[in-house]
């Protein structure tokens, strides 16, 4: 084999390897980028019903009096948290565009302060795109003192552009403990900072 050809071939091999390695690194980056991309995608499409997890300003909207939407609240206890969460108003019949307030009661049954959070979810998932939460306990973690009972509101609007097919919305809140106050606190701060921007 002529050595010049061989050297050229080795160079070509090296070039291919460099390119595939580059593609590899790019794909690895892409894998991790998928996490934020997924969030963006979900916020755009309502894919996972989490689009209504961030505060939005109240908007004056035309109230569509001709249309009724039923909104149901359900709560779910998470493990390791000595709390209960109760929706005082279990079901609402609302007009799209109007602003409504629902009351929730948090109770800490422990004789020590506990931090926790309520993770929101909306079904049908598309509905989360048309739900504007102006005030919600789910935007941040809560700390409840020993035996504390706290009533917190959820203020929300439903866009009049809610698709015709959606006549019912279910808003679920699942309680979870905030595990290690220090690290999880940072995490939470990051999350909420991300949420506000």
């Amino acid at each position: 084999m002529p050595s010049r050809d061989h050297a050229a071939q080795q160079q070509a091999v090296a070039r291919t390897v460099r390119r595939t390695l580059l593609a590899l690194v790019a794909m690895l980056g892409f894998a991790f980028a998928l996490v934020p991309l997924y969030d963006v995608f979900c916020n755009l499409t309502g894919l996972n019903g989490k689009a209504a997890s961030q505060a939005k300003a109240a908007v004056a909207m035309e109230i569509d009096e001709s249309r009724w939407v039923s909104v149901r609240f359900i709560t779910q206890q998470g493990q390791g948290l000595p709390w209960t969460l109760e929706a005082l108003d279990e079901q609402f019949r609302i007009h799209p565009g109007g602003q409504y307030s629902a009351r929730f009661v948090f109770t800490n049954h422990a004789d020590y302060p506990v931090r926790g959070r309520a993770v929101p979810s909306v079904s049908p998932a598309e509905g989360s795109l048309h739900l504007r939460k102006i005030m919600c306990f789910c935007f941040q973690e809560q700390t409840l003192a020993a035996g504390e009972r706290r009533e917190l509101p959820l203020v929300f609007q439903v866009d009049p552009d809610l698709p015709e097919g959606i006549r019912d919305l279910t808003l679920a809140y699942t309680l979870y403990p905030v595990m290690t106050p220090s690290s999880a606190g940072d995490d939470g701060a990051e999350n909420s900072a991300g949420g506000e921007t």
Binding site: A23, M27, M179
Partner: peptide, 30 residues
Amino acid sequence: IAVMPVLAGAITMMLFDINFGTSYFNAAGG
């Protein structure tokens, strides 16, 4: 080349969730 890195990424996130308290896949942490 295209998909093995995605698997590697997913299992690395699992590893972090298990050992370092992250919440990629844990609803409790968002």
